[in-house]
Amino acid sequence: MRGKELNISLKGRIAALVLVLLLSLTVLAAPVFAWFSFSRILASYAPISKPESLYIGAGHRDFDETNGVFLNDHFEDIRYLYLEGIDVHNDDTYYDYVFCVFGKAITHYRMQLAYTTNNQFIYEIYNATEYTAAEYGALAQAQQDLCVEYTTHDATPATYYYKATGTALPGNYLNAQTVGGETLATDSYHTATYGAYDEVDKFAEPIYWQTRDNINGNRRGDFIHYYILRVYVNNKQDNDRETDVICIAAKSFSAAS
């Protein structure tokens, strides 16, 4: 190589010089070309809000307490919650109905009620304890009398019993007032409920209620909570076939609220 280099003609030297110049120009130009040439594909990204799995069902759901997982996909649809058999002539002052709130990866939630006031019933929500038929059989008669029965609707129906525990969940009304001995909704949520429509009977204006405290779910897994909805007849004397609508909701809140 060295020998060859020594033999380069003048023309060759000039050629080499020009080539070097050309190359150095290309080196300078290269980043500009590169800059124009790149960026052929774009990706525009955005986070997706994870759906919250929070549901209301009727009675029993198979659940592994130890591991915090549902044992199967079967749950009792909320349509099996029948608010039936309320007899205002009966001596009973209240009727109990079982329902449940279940979900996955929910930090906490609150229970909400919305109901019309034709019947002037009083509604309360209690935590409930579940008993299998065998556990129920072991209870004293007085305890058994406090239970409500629920039979599942899956392939092999089973009967469970639920009893309210403790006191009613504390909560707050958004819009309740007492007028002449009747509990009625104020008009503060009228627009939210009915919009501009204003020919609404005073008993059809729903009262909104929500639990005062957050109820803990299970941030890392499944959970199920049973509740008793207790309906007080509230001294109503007439079986006048009045109809009320009651909505039960469970609403999850972010951790900070």
Binding site: W35, F38, S39, L42, Y45
Partner: peptide, 22 residues
């Protein structure tokens, strides 16, 4: 800001409907 030195660029999608919480 430029596209220099990148054959593929990733950037944020514009969302006009945020929800407000706390």
């Amino acid at each position: 800001v430029s596209t220099a030195a990148a054959s593929k660029l990733a950037y944020e999608l514009q969302n006009d409907a945020p929800f407000r919480d706390d």
